[in-house]
Design a protein around this nucleic acid. Structure first.
Lengths: 112, 112
DNA sequence: CAGTATCCACAACGATACTG
DNA sequence: CAGTATCGTTGTGGATACTG
């Protein structure tokens, strides 16, 4: 099954699933957001902000929306004042764990 | 060993190895370049260009330089006219195969 | 608290033309 | 063939201020 994938040759390699992945899950913040949600299960907006560090509210909000659209993050709003919003990973989001672990491991061994 | 990684909590999550990976191997073209070199072993500049599709010479040249600096790609120049330059993956580059396969597989199952 | 809105800087990316 | 050089566009990310 995985072998089929490596055999397949796209006429244009840049249309391959890796590009798709990089476009949708890549970038500066999305992998980190997913990672802290893997570590913490449920987090509020400000908790994410502090845990990640160095991210602006605008970026955090924007990236969370993107991830919600991809069904990777689930957003739960409690209708209270002051507002309370919880973020957690969907099953799809959790299924990224092995990918991210592998990347971290490789990165630790090969990058500085 | 991998477990240690997931246990470790960075004060600032955005400094984690995933971010490092995305900064250095991420982006629009690097993963694709690595991928076609995994499929073809040795390639010349114009072959890479055609195999990838949609990339400008400038981008291809630039990204290859970056990958060379990271010791992921090896560049071999033959002093002939017209010029002949071959690109191949280093061992470090080849060690990305499992990562990329995993990403492709996940992408195929979860993204459109 | 959990965001928006606005404006701005810079880097990434691309098209085209040119060269040893 | 394998690139550079140049210029222009687009996208990404950030600072700050404001709001229900």
């Amino acid at each position: 099954m995985q072998e089929e994938i490596i055999e397949k040759k796209y006429t244009q390699a840049h249309e391959c699933p890796i590009t798709l992945f990089m476009e949708q899950i890549g970038g500066k913040w999305k992998p980190v957001i997913i990672w802290v949600l893997l570590l913490n299960e449920v987090m509020r907006f400000n908790e994410l902000d502090k845990a990640i560090g160095g991210i602006s509210q605008k970026m955090l909000s924007q990236q969370l929306k993107d991830l919600e659209k991809l069904d990777i993050v689930i957003r739960k709003v409690y209708p209270v004042i002051p507002p309370k919003v919880e973020y957690r990973l969907s099953e799809k989001g959790k299924s990224l764990e092995e990918n991210l672990k592998m990347i971290m491991s490789w990165s630790n061994q090969n990058l500085k």
